[in-house]
């Protein structure tokens, strides 16, 4: 189960991975965006306690973030 500390480790790991991958090649665009979306979810679900909230709030944020990330990814293909 995720806790604040492992959440933090994952966040740092994803940040470094994102920066490194984007420096390697522009082909990793989708991957970088997905890493940042994952970080978005870690912060909102773990740090902000969204995982205990009413499904309405969880679904709304999922839809908004996934929608945005997919628009960015597909528009760049």
């Amino acid at each position: 189960m995720l806790n604040n500390k492992t959440g933090w480790l994952l966040l740092i790991l994803f940040t470094l991975a994102g920066s490194w991958l984007s420096g390697l090649s522009h082909a990793f665009l989708a991957l970088v965006m997905i890493l940042f979306a994952l970080k978005f979810f870690i912060i909102s679900y773990q740090y902000m306690g969204l995982r205990f909230a009413h499904p309405f709030w969880r679904y709304s944020i999922n839809i908004v973030v996934l929608g945005f990330v997919s628009v960015i990814i597909f528009s760049s293909l």
């Binding site: 994102g18 920066s19 522009h26 970080k39 978005f40 909102s44 740090y47 902000m48």
Partner: peptide, 22 residues
């Protein structure tokens, strides 16, 4: 705290869009 985390959330969108992906 939620307001503070919101700054993180926004930065999670800004940072890759502005600095990383092309």
């Amino acid at each position: 705290a939620a307001f503070w985390h919101m700054c993180d959330l926004i930065w999670m969108l800004l940072f890759p869009m502005l600095y990383l992906i092309n």
